[in-house]
Design a protein around this nucleic acid. Structure first.
Length: 429
RNA sequence: GGAGAGGUGCCGGAGUGGUCGAACGGGGCGGUCUCGAAAACCGUUGUGGGGGUGACCCCACCCAGGGUUCGAAUCCCUGUCUCUCCGCCA
C-alpha cells in the first residue's frame, strides 16, 4: 500500500516508478480523489465543530430555563447534524474510492532493480556448484528408486490433478528435508521457529497483499477463512497493528507449513510430476525490521536459503528479478533456482523479497524509533527456505545414479535412520 | 454446538446519559533534593486525521460497526475476541 502523502509530494517519481513496472500513470487520478476527500473532510469537521459548540450551549440554556434559546440551539444542532452527515458521507465515499485504488497498486521497485518485461530479463547474480555429469538424466517421477514412493494416479483419485501421494522412503525423505531446514534455520541461522494457522481472515490476506486483487489464486472455506498460499501470510501478520520497540528489531522467524494455491491461469505449465501442486509444504522465513535494516536483511535471508542448498550439495544460481517479473508486494526479489538434471534447467526453488514498508502500511505495523518519537512503519521480508516439494525433486534428480538408485546428501542421514541412499527398488539403505 | 460473564489509556482499575480523552494507583519520561542513588515531592506521559509559513487550531477514537438522544465510555442492536460451565473432539 502506498502513502498518499508521499504521492502528493512527488507524483512524478511515483509515476516514473510505475512506468518501470510497465504500468500507466496513476498519480493524477489518485490526487484528484484525494483532493475531493480532503475538501469533504475539512467541511465535515467545520460543521462538526459548530455542532459541538451548539450542543454545549444547549445544556446551559436548559439549565437557566431559557426555553427560547434552548429551542433555537436545538434546531441549530439538528441542522448542523444533517450537514455533518452529508459531508461525512462524501468524505467516506471519497476515502473508500482512494483506498480501493491504492489497495490494487503493486509495490515499486528499488532503483537498483534491473528493468525488464519478464523472466527473460532477470539478471544472474551468482552460481554455486556445478551439475554432475549424468548419462541419461531422468525427471524425478521417472527414476526407478522413486517408483513405489510417488503415486500420482492415487492422488488423482482422491483429489484430482496437481496433488501427490508419497510413500515409504520418499515420504520419509520429504519429511526429513523439512526437518533439516527447520533445524538449520532455527540453529546456526538464529531464526525463531514458529507455527501458525493456515486458515486466516480476510484482513491477514489483505495485509500481505493477496487481497483484494488476487482472490482467484487462493482457496476459501465455506465460512470465509482463506487457506494461505504461503505461511508468509500468517507470520508477517503477527505484526499487524503492533508497535515494536526499535531495540526488538529485527525479528527473524521461520515456519514450516502447508501451502494452498489454486494456481489460476497456470494451466498447462509443468503438468507432469510434482513441481506445481495445489497443496505443498514450504519452510518460510519472515523478518520484521526497520526500513534501514531491510537490504542487509534481504542479503542475509538469501544467504540462509542458499545455505540449505549448499548443505544438500545442490547446484543453484541466484537471480535478481527484473521490474516486470516481481511479485505484487516486493521491492526487490532474489529468486534462487536449483539445477534440475531431468529438465536440464535451473528452476525456482526459493524467492526472497523485501517489501519495504509496503505490507506494514497495509497492516499498520510500526516501531518506535530509538530515543522515542512517532511510530514509523516497519519493513517486512519473506523468503522460502525452501519449498520442500521442489527440494525433494532436486535431491532425487541430482542424486540419481545409473543403476536406478538415488544417492542422498550426508546431512540428511540423521533424519533417515542413517541411510545415504534409496535403492533402485525404493528402499532406504 | 448450548448457557453465562466480560472487553476502558503502557499496566491495574474507576466511571450507567451531560464540559470524560477519561478519577485513582503503578510504570515510563523530565525536574527538585543528593557527592551519587534510593525515598519523597512537582510536572509530564496515547493514536489517527484535517487546516495553518508558524506559534497553534480543529475533528475522531473508552473492541468494531450501526442505532436512540439536543448530548453516549455510559442505553439499544449486530459482529468480534476473551473467560467459565456443559456437549463434542485430535
Amino acid at each position: 500500500m502506498h502513502d498518499i502523502r508521499a504521492i502528493r509530494e512527488n507524483p512524478e517519481a511515483f509515476d516514473a516508478a510505475l512506468a518501470r513496472r510497465g504500468l500507466a500513470s496513476l498519480a493524477g487520478e489518485l490526487l484528484a480523489v484525494d483532493e475531493q476527500r480532503r475538501a469533504a473532510i475539512t467541511r465535515a469537521e467545520g460543521a462538526q465543530a459548530e455542532q459541538n459548540r451548539a450542543s454545549k450551549e444547549v445544556g446551559a440554556a436548559k439549565a437557566r430555563g431559557d426555553e427560547g434559546e434552548f429551542e433555537r440551539l436545538r434546531a441549530l444542532v439538528a441542522e448542523k447534524k444533517a450537514e455533518v452527515a452529508a459531508m461525512r458521507g462524501e468524505a467516506d465515499a471519497a476515502d473508500a474510492r482512494l483506498q480501493a485504488m491504492l489497495a490494487e497498486i503493486p509495490n515499486l521497485p528499488l532503483a537498483e532493480v534491473p528493468e525488464g518485461a519478464d523472466e527473460a530479463d532477470n539478471v544472474e547474480v551468482r552460481r554455486w556448484g556445478s551439475p554432475r555429469n549424468i548419462e541419461t538424466p531422468r525427471e524425478h517421477f521417472d527414476i526407478p528408486a522413486v517408483q513405489g514412493g510417488l503415486d500420482l494416479p492415487l492422488a488423482a483419485k482422491l483429489s484430482g490433478a496437481r496433488f501427490m501421494v508419497l510413500r515409504a522412503s520418499v515420504a520419509r525423505l520429504h519429511r526429513a528435508l523439512a526437518q533439516f531446514m527447520l533445524d538449520l534455520h532455527g540453529g546456526s541461522h538464529g531464526l525463531t521457529e514458529v507455527w501458525a494457522p493456515v486458515l486466516v481472515r480476510d484482513e491477514a490476506m489483505f495485509g500481505t497483499g493477496q487481497l483484494p486483487k488476487f482472490a482467484e489464486d487462493s482457496y476459501q472455506t465455506t465460512n470465509g477463512w482463506w487457506l494461505v498460499p504461503t505461511s508468509e501470510v500468517s507470520i508477517t501478520n503477527f505484526a499487524a497493528g503492533e508497535i515494536y520497540e526499535a531495540g526488538d528489531l529485527p525479528i527473524r522467524m521461520v515456519a514450516h507449513s502447508q501451502c494452498f494455491r489454486s494456481e489460476a491461469g497456470s494451466a498447462g505449465k509443468d503438468t507432469t510430476g510434482i513441481l506445481r501442486q495445489h497443496q505443498f509444504e514450504k519452510v518460510e522465513m519472515v523478518t520484521l525490521c526497520t526500513p534501514d535494516q531491510a537490504l542487509a536483511e534481504h542479503e542475509r535471508m538469501t544467504g540462509c536459503a542458499e545455505a540449505v542448498l549448499q548443505a544438500l550439495g545442490l547446484p543453484y544460481r541466484v537471480v535478481v528479478l527484473c521490474t516486470g517479473d516481481m511479485g505484487f508486494g516486493a521491492q526487490k526479489t532474489h529468486d534462487i533456482e536449483v539445477w534440475l538434471p531431468g529438465q536440464g534447467k535451473y528452476r525456482e526453488i526459493s524467492s526472497v523479497s523485501t517489501c519495504g514498508t509496503f505490507q506494514a502500511r497495509r497492516m499498520n505495523a510500526r516501531f518506535r524509533p530509538e530515543g522515542g518519537g512517532k511510530p514509523e512503519f516497519i519493513a517486512t521480508l519473506n523468503g522460502s527456505g525452501l519449498a520442500v516439494g521442489r527440494t525433494l525433486i532436486a535431491v532425487l534428480e541430482n542424486g540419481q545414479e545409473a543403476d536406478g538408485s538415488v544417492s542422498l546428501p550426508e546431512v540428511l542421514a540423521p533424519y533417515l535412520g542413517g541411510a545415504g541412499q534409496i535403492s533402485a527398488e525404493g528402499a532406504l539403505v
